[in-house]
């Protein structure tokens, strides 16, 4: 009976852990996606100075969010997102303006993929 107790505790711990991890990931990544949408809106409305500030803030927030997700998600994907986030303010300041939207949509797409990666959808399980 003691071992059954251990098994139940383990399963409960794993279930709670999975639930909390999923909720944390969803919250953190949703917040980044919202910020991404705000940056795009500012850029399209041609508020360049505000867009640069927002992009820098997005890059900082991405780094801190990814550090918190490092124990839950594959590091290679997180590195890819991190590199993109760091490049965004630089492109906006000095680079081709068209590249900015391309990189921003790549960044958003990666965040969306990572956000949905852990959901118990059939395509994820299979």
């Amino acid at each position: 009976m003691k071992r059954v107790g251990v098994a139940v505790v383990l399963l409960l711990a794993v279930s709670i852990g999975c639930f909390l991890a999923l909720r944390t990931e969803k919250r953190l990544l949703s917040s980044l996606l919202t910020q991404t949408a705000q940056v795009e809106q500012l850029y399209r409305q041609e508020y360049k100075a505000e867009a640069i500030t927002a992009t820098e803030q997005l890059a900082d927030n991405t780094q801190s969010t990814l550090r918190r997700c490092a124990c839950l998600l594959p590091h290679s994907t997180l590195t890819e997102i991190s590199v993109l986030a760091t490049a965004l303010p630089v492109i906006l300041k000095d680079g081709n303006q068209d590249d900015f939207l391309t990189e921003l949509s790549k960044f958003r797409m990666l965040l969306t993929v990572v956000k949905q990666m852990e959901y118990p959808y059939l395509e994820n399980i299979l």
């Binding site: 059954v4 251990v6 139940v8 383990l10 711990a13 794993v14 124990c71 998600l73």
Partner: peptide
């Protein structure tokens, strides 16, 4: 590049299933 938890969580699940 793989989180340690990705290995530990399945081990915990397997142990629990084996015990049950």
């Amino acid at each position: 590049g793989m989180p340690l938890l990705s290995g530990l969580v399945p081990i915990a699940v397997l142990v629990a299933l084996e015990l049950l």
